[in-house]
């Protein structure tokens, strides 16, 4: 749920990157952090294990500056992807205005992708929201891998509801900003 503070003239929105473990959610945030202009970004905060797996979340505030006198800030979060951490994902998803689902394109990851997406739908619904109306963007990551599935097959399994989707290689930044731009605009249009 976005927060609009009329007195301070501020708008805050929350976008969560969701998806299976090692799919590239944190990599998306790292690329965004490394690339956006200095004045627009806050510190990238990670609660991770020693091996850099996300334990709780990553957090990156992006300040879009003043538009029509309103300061707009997007709060980007990732969830830990490992199956075990569903309750942590629920906690981070709390109050989200939009979600980017980062799917791993590798053939052997398809089942994990599907399960994670089903879990997302369940958790959004559990918050009392209609999943079909919820701002969602699909990102098929790791398109550069030899064992990446054809996009049509991924669509068949992951995008039956036909939300905007992008092919990506997050480690090189491909598709990262297209995804971010689209979800940001969807969130703004829901305000």
């Amino acid at each position: 749920m976005a927060l609009i503070n009329v007195a301070a003239k501020e708008i805050h929105c929350k976008i969560v990157y969701y998806g299976p473990g090692l799919g590239g959610k944190t990599t998306n945030l790292k690329y965004i952090h490394a690339t956006v202009p200095k004045q627009a970004k806050g510190e990238l905060l990670s609660i991770a294990t020693e091996t850099e797996r996300t334990l709780f979340f990553d957090f990156l505030p992006l300040d879009l500056g003043s538009v029509h006198g309103f300061q707009t800030v997007f709060h980007l979060y990732t969830v830990p992807g490992q199956v075990l951490y569903e309750r942590t994902r629920v906690a981070v998803l709390n109050g989200a205005d939009g979600v980017v689902f980062v799917a791993d394109s590798q053939r052997h990851k398809l089942e994990e992708d599907v399960r994670s997406l089903q879990e997302l739908a369940r958790n959004v619904t559990a918050q009392g929201k209609r999943f079909l109306d919820f701002p969602l963007v699909m990102q098929y990551n790791k398109r550069d891998m030899d064992n990446a599935l054809p996009v049509q097959i991924m669509d068949q399994y992951l995008n039956t509801i036909r939300v905007p989707r992008f092919e990506a290689v997050a480690s090189r930044g491909l598709g990262v900003f297209d995804t971010l731009k689209t979800i940001s605009k969807m969130v703004i249009n829901k305000l």
């Binding site: 609009i4 009329v6 708008i11 965004i32 690339t35 956006v36 202009p37 627009a40 992006l62 879009l64 500056g65 538009v67 029509h68 309103f70 707009t72 930044g173 900003f177 971010l180 731009k181 940001s184 605009k185 703004i188 249009n189 305000l191």
Partner: peptide
Amino acid sequence: DAVISSSFRTSMEDTIDLLFKD
């Protein structure tokens, strides 16, 4: 009602395009 006008949304979209790029 929404305090956000449609012109605000358009300006926001322009800002997003300007800022979120490689």
